[in-house]
Design a protein around this nucleic acid. Structure first.
Lengths: 233, 233
DNA sequence: CAACAGGCTTGATAATCATCAATTGCACCC
DNA sequence: GGGTGCAATTGATGATTATCAAGCCTGTTG
């Protein structure tokens, strides 16, 4: 592992406070691995072998049931995932696959749990991380239960624009079918919902999206700090 | 606070391991309060004053947006709620109200955070609790995104029956409108979905529900350990 | 260049779900 | 008993969403 990667990871809130010795333990036991795009990393129902950290690339967390499938989150660098399963030593509730070629740090679950048991600072950081994740899923559940499809899309566009710098113009980072799944709709309906907004307040050309009437978009999205902050994806 | 209440709370996984001295600190600082039914306990958007423990009665967690409202969880004794907000000292994402007359232990948030910072055993227990909650919300999100209304209802009936002893016959603990909201549907559609199942595999009379053809109900619900365990409500 | 594949769009139709309105049923109260 | 109030049901209708089936566009490849 290159020193700059180590620093990137060290900078994560989850690791930044812990004693150097423990951090070294984690890193020494870990593998930094390259994966091509569209590779399944973990499968729901299995027991966790590693705590994963996306160092580069994008990873999709998704779940399947009865032939249906739904995106739950898209992880971009530098972020950990499946922390809860590792800590609990319980089966994954989500599968994960790379969306792009990716470099991923894999910390053996056993090591992570061991350090967690030894280093109080790390343990505290795990609490923060879990609490933040918990709140983020609650937000997403509210998003799903309280908004219609167009509203979710409008809110997502506003959030994506804000992440991209708030210029009112940005490019989709992923396939539309992936975004559709994340938003809880079919690709067909994402198309139609984009068309609806395009008649009103945005211009959508391929993956480029421009907000032309932010006020109208806001009226549809009704952004809400209790739903839209700490955004997923 | 009566000693038997203290024991009930002490028995919770969140508190059972911690040193007696710290537990006493928590309890000494706490109020045990009675509330009538249908009282708002906390309001989304506000900052947490207390960690709540439902000692008796039922509490509904819900969220509102744009005039719509949706149940997120129903808390029955003995369980804590809004732990994540207290630990993070961040605004509530959900409101809470009593569904029945209730007795609730209110531990000052400040005290809870203080003990959390001092007692490593308590901190570990908080991690477990948060991880479990996180996973439970992920399950609920999957339930919402991957199942239709009837399917959610069928799965909920199976889970409710299991909680009640698996006899195939149980009584709804709450209003149908509350259950509808929890299941992510309107009261009207809960009625219709119940009617659908009643033609097939259940008998529903008022609040009494009997499963007459479990195999058919299972075929509709398609119970899934990665969705239906660690059930909400 | 022509052919092909894949992502995306569009249209037609059906399933699912919400809304509005009316009615029923039941508990509670005078 | 006769209201009254509220939850629950039922019906009618419309909105939302999914599914199936073409078609379009673009980049790739032979």
């Amino acid at each position: 592992m290159r020193p700059q990667d180590s620093e990137l990871i060290r900078a994560l809130p989850l690791f930044s406070g812990m004693a150097a010795a423990w951090f070294d333990d984690l890193v020494r036991a870990a593998f930094l691995q390259r994966f091509p795009a569209h590779v399944l990393l973990i499968k729901e129902g299995e027991l966790p072998d590693f705590l994963h950290v996306v160092v580069e690339g994008a990873v999709e967390l998704f779940a399947a049931h009865r032939g249906r499938e739904s995106s739950i989150d898209i992880i971009s660098p530098v972020t950990t995932f499946i922390l809860a399963a590792v800590i609990q030593d319980a089966v994954y509730l989500k599968s994960a696959r790379t969306l792009t070629p990716a470099r991923i740090l894999m910390i053996p679950a056993e090591t992570a749990r061991h350090v967690f048991g030894q280093d109080a600072v790390f343990a505290r950081a795990v609490v923060s991380e879990l609490a933040a994740r918990y709140r983020s899923v609650v937000r997403e559940l509210k998003n799903q239960k309280l908004r219609t499809g167009v509203e979710r899309l409008a809110a997502w566009i506003l959030a994506a624009d804000a992440r991209a710098g708030g210029t009112g113009r940005f490019t989709l980072a992923h396939d539309k079918r992936t975004i559709a799944s994340l938003l809880g709709m079919t690709p067909e309906n994402l198309s139609r919902n984009l068309a609806t907004l395009a008649s009103d307040c945005i211009v959508s050309e391929g993956r480029d999206l421009t907000i032309t009437h932010r006020d109208r978009l806001v009226r549809i999205a009704a952004p809400d700090p209790l739903i839209d902050s700490g955004q997923i994806a």
